[in-house]
Write a protein that binds this DNA or RNA. Sequence first.
DNA 1: CGAGGATTCTTCAGTTACTAAACAAAGAAA
DNA 2: TTTCTTTGTTTAGTAACTGAAGAATCCTCG
Lengths: 409, 409
Amino acid sequence: MSGPARVTHASTRAAVLDLVRAAGMISRVGLVNATGLTGGTISTVVRGLIDEGLVAETGHAESTGGKRRVMLQLNHFARYAVGVHLDGARITYVLTNLGGAVVARISRAGAGADEPAAVVARVAREADALIDSVGVERDRILGLGLVAARPAEHHEFGRALERATGLPVVLDHDATAAAIGEHWSGGVGATSTFAALFMGTGIGAGIVLGGTTYRGPSGHTGEIGHACLDVDGPRCWCGARGCLEVLAGPAAVVEQARADRALTRAAGLVGGRTRAATPVAADFAAISRAARQGNTRAVALLERSARYVAAAARTLANVLDLEVLVLTGPSFAIAGSIYLPVLRAELDSAFIARDVHPISVRLSPSAASAPAIGAAAIVLQSELVPRRQGLRLPDDLAAEEPPVFQVLR
Amino acid sequence: MSGPARVTHASTRAAVLDLVRAAGMISRVGLVNATGLTGGTISTVVRGLIDEGLVAETGHAESTGGKRRVMLQLNHFARYAVGVHLDGARITYVLTNLGGAVVARISRAGAGADEPAAVVARVAREADALIDSVGVERDRILGLGLVAARPAEHHEFGRALERATGLPVVLDHDATAAAIGEHWSGGVGATSTFAALFMGTGIGAGIVLGGTTYRGPSGHTGEIGHACLDVDGPRCWCGARGCLEVLAGPAAVVEQARADRALTRAAGLVGGRTRAATPVAADFAAISRAARQGNTRAVALLERSARYVAAAARTLANVLDLEVLVLTGPSFAIAGSIYLPVLRAELDSAFIARDVHPISVRLSPSAASAPAIGAAAIVLQSELVPRRQGLRLPDDLAAEEPPVFQVLR
DNA sequence: CGAGGATTCTTCAGTTACTAAACAAAGAAA
DNA sequence: TTTCTTTGTTTAGTAACTGAAGAATCCTCG
């Protein structure tokens, strides 16, 4: 009759490790305040983490009247993870360390119409090459994260890749991965509620609520590309009318640009003529370049798109009570500087909870490789932070006063 | 150095109690399967619940080849909770039992411009009268739930009410309360992801994700009334353009109706002339009545509104990957039958995850008093289900085969 | 009708992850 | 130097579980 063995209480070890990562540097007393656990517990948990080599004592804080705090930091190079982003056009690989920092990165041609078995073999080979290029021992690699726009279609691929590489493979949505990547690499607080607005060829959003990734019952969350912005708008492939993607997604922008002879010539759009592997991505990049070089018609086109994206972002923020919104993904990597001010203006003037708390809108520092970095971050998270629920986490991590740092002699 | 005392592991007792409530009737073995706990644990936890009078053994299931399962049920009349909904026009009181069933219900005039102290005294008196009307002992009442459109403004009021009634008071958003009420009274599954679309004078949404209420960092969640449905639409008080509320909320519908002479006369709208306490609510009701009686202009007006609400509902469903959408609140209580088919059609044809899982759209069976019922449910939840996180709950409660019930001799 | 199996539920010893509290160590202030 | 403050460690005790054995109940079949 006995049920399966389980850890009922959230793994304290994992929660402490996550706090150390999120804080960058923190003392044992800081962990006591942050977790609500007692000093004794923190003491033993930290000892275990130090023994495993995951955490190290890196110096002392200034005294506040008594013994100085010993500061703890994540040992960034104790473990690694591989992240792979399958896009239509390209496959991006990153190797990150425990802190989510990119140690190595390569980008290769997409799978195209190649045979799945051949693609598996190639991806495994290229991932191996990435690992070898920095000479990391195999047993320090926690696993491989694989992300794509429609992860459900890559189940079989993931399993084959697991066999080919010998690494555990986790599969996820690219937008969700991008959000986790932002979260892990520390741009946003440990318990913050935020969304990563992801623009590739389509538009999606990765959602993190109170520090926990939200995946929904079927994994189809954050489909902000199919937010309605015009009840009488043009029809979308999803069956509805006036979806953001149809009105203002990269494909829509490119289509509008192609209808403009002057702009087509000025920006050197390829799509209509040569049909490259991903004409939309290439043409969208061309339009963005033209806009940055001052082409007013390109600017107008992108700003029009930005107004729609901003309206959808506001809807998202109002529904979820967001604290942070990060723009990421290949398309924002190119055109983010044009979209950012429009979104900022919209949310500053119309976010409904703006009087209670601000909403910070920012551009990801690594928008182009965000999905791949996020893929690696998911591995780090799945291996080291099994489940964070059920533990009191600090309302504000910044409450821990940043101590003056001194190198250990 | 020792931190504050805390319950780290989710209270098993509370989780088991919640499962009994959600399942209606379940055996110990059922609980073992549902929780993942061992038989021994369930045995002792259940004994405790029976000793407290919260749960009772109510019969036997048919044998499946061995000893028959003893079925457990919530002892619905072991505890009670009071729910109070402060609306502009009216104050609604309900007394519910543990199962969330309404035992008594009264409705009185709203606070209007009365002095706060007088309102506190009146509410306390009316709540007492409600309790006395069914003759429930005071110590069986867990507390009083107070909900309003803007709970933040009623903090002081709540504290005063706590002193006046001697009952613990919890405060929450009306839309969130409505969602919890739907969840508690069992219309939706224990771990389901759903939203309660709430229409009073404004439009909001209460959100429950995987069985857990989502309140966001500042409690301003589900503001679907300020979803953008037209980037060039009319300006809203929130600062934005084209908000759902401005385009299609009850106030907008009433305004449009008043501009229509024939409809104003046919429906007998009062707003323009006499300025009642809440002209919008009264006039919206009048328009709905006219529509139900076949007035084509009223029908057209409401169906236009429904199209906008449906588009916003689709956006919400696509972002959160919803499984269930419940229409509730005073305005849906009156006009729900007109909105329901429009929303169903929209989500059946355009919900993005519809091929993976269906989304069920339904009208709350008690839309008018849903906020008050929800307020009481919040008390039940806060007292009996302190924190449900960190425990594996069943994917599908229906998996427990419904046993043939027999009354215990 | 009674043995034997199946299933449900209980009991109890053992494990784990914590807390509480005493203690030790390190620096500041006097 | 002495005394105080703060940080971190050790130890004993406890709550909430698991695992495994056993008791209770019911069905089936000779």
